[in-house]
Amino acid sequence: MESTIVSTKGFNAYFGTNHVVKDVNIDIPQNNVVAVMGPSGCGKTTFLRCINRMHELIPGATANGTIMLHNENVYDMHPIFVRLKIGMVFQRPNPFPNLSIYDNVIAGYKLNGIKLPKEEKDRIVEHSLTKSALWNEVKDALHKKGNFLSGGQQQRLCIARAIAMEPEVLLLDEPTSALDPISTSSIEALLHDLKKNYTLIIVTHNMQQAARVSDRTAFFYLGELVEYDDTKKMFTNPKDTRTQNYITGRFS
């Protein structure tokens, strides 16, 4: 049995009085890819942003309940430490436009004021870019700014930036929705490699993507976690009629 790395209990999230995530209980096993899917507005992105406490940065946003990372409640930890342990990749590639590719990868260290010797930085940059399958494409242009990169390359740069901090969990918020099909498939292939070292939670509204990349799938509908199961089981034999309707395309 795999060990659980993230587990939530009675978790709720709000925007003002709007209850967007309702009483979610979910256990995320280590070194798995867990897909969170559901129609737009179902609270899946909000739930993801709660896990590394990005949700509360929005004015008026609140949350309650517990999210355990190993044996620690992230809502008892300082948000800065939570975000160092739980990395995030956003919907739109957002490398820092004023930094070189190299500096983008180690941006997390720079931002946190961690000074590293040059060899260490070089090692981290190469390691992270290799893991994010970008090294061969950019190794000759490390000190150029990243704006000549394609959308897919920029997204992989963002993944490199996130894993450079050696997080335990990587949250991906619809990481391919702004990308073309070729970039999408390269990112999906990458996710498969990354799960050896990290636990991945990926939000997607694309069912095929959830089926392709994930080990387990959670289906959110109107803020509730409707069903959470093995991806194969979920897609072949959904228990809830709402899941069934969603998978068969009766609503989206």
Partner: peptide
């Protein structure tokens, strides 16, 4: 300043001041 850049820095564990210094002011 695009909020996605500020969020990128926050998600890497930057504090408010670090976001201002490293993202907002250079931008």
């Amino acid at each position: 300043v695009p909020s996605q850049l500020k969020e990128a820095a926050s998600a890497l564990g930057a504090t408010r001041w670090e976001v201002i210094r490293s993202v907002i002011l250079p931008y």
